[in-house]
């Protein structure tokens, strides 16, 4: 039976690089159907925290609980429920969009990788460009393929690092719609972003980070820019 969880808990997580503290005593929880924003200036620890949530980094102190298991306890079962879209898009530019999606579907052990890739291309609006090499795509098209790559295996936890960077208005609107659709499907979405205009109204909750610490939490994401300014100052 496939492991699943509906709650993500970050419990007093700290991460040190030598003597430098990237994160200190970070704690919060997320429930299924929430979009949580990690907001803060450069170097605040947002990407480090996303990497810890993705199980790619281990916390120096504290733990992350995926339901009733930690990453160490869950291993591959936990990773199977996580999808991540990094600032770099995790795509092979020499391969076609379809080849990229089929490869990752195979890595995730999906029963029919080709069908999963075709469905993902359809959702990305790129069904007719599936056999084109990814390096020939625009940033927006690559982003759409990368998002569908992250969602191929229907993850419970979706982590996005600066997903709106370099996108035009139409691509941003399409991405926002896809994220809202995932929220309604019961995913937990955690987004690290500087793009407060897009995040405004999208987030269920905003967590403000500064110098590796949580300096504020907000459940009303409207008027985000002003509250961000107050929290970070």
């Amino acid at each position: 039976m496939i492991y699943d969880f509906r709650r993500l808990a970050v419990v007093d997580v700290a991460r040190h690089y030598g003597r430098r503290k990237a994160l200190s005593q970070v704690a919060f929880t997320c429930e299924a159907g929430e979009i949580v924003g990690l907001l803060g200036p450069n170097g605040a620890g947002k990407s480090t925290l996303l990497n810890i949530l993705a199980t790619l980094l281990t916390a120096s102190r504290g733990r992350v609980e995926y339901g009733d298991r930690t990453a160490a306890q869950g291993g591959g079962e936990v990773r199977a429920r996580i999808g991540m879209l990094g600032h770099d898009l995790f795509l092979y530019p020499e391969l076609t969009a379809r080849e990229n999606l089929i490869f990752f579907a195979q890595l995730y052990g999906l029963p029919d990788a080709r069908a999963a890739a075709d469905a993902a291309l359809e959702r990305a609006g790129l069904a007719d460009r599936g056999d084109d090499i990814v390096s020939g795509f625009s940033r927006g098209m690559r982003q759409r393929v990368a998002l569908e790559r992250a969602l191929l295996h229907d993850p419970r936890l979706v982590l996005l690092d600066e997903p709106f960077t370099g996108l035009d208005q139409a691509s941003t609107a399409a991405l926002v719609a896809r994220l809202q659709e995932r929220r309604e499907a019961g995913c937990i979405l955690v987004i690290a972003t500087h793009d407060l205009d897009v995040a405004d109204g999208l987030l269920s909750r905003a967590i403000y980070l500064k110098n590796g610490r949580v300096v504020g939490t907000d459940t009303d994401s409207r008027g985000l820019s002003e509250r961000y300014r107050i929290a970070i100052q």
Partner: peptide, 8 residues
């Protein structure tokens, strides 16, 4: 990172 994230 994408390879390491896979449940394999």
């Amino acid at each position: 990172r994408a390879l390491l994230l896979a449940p394999t």
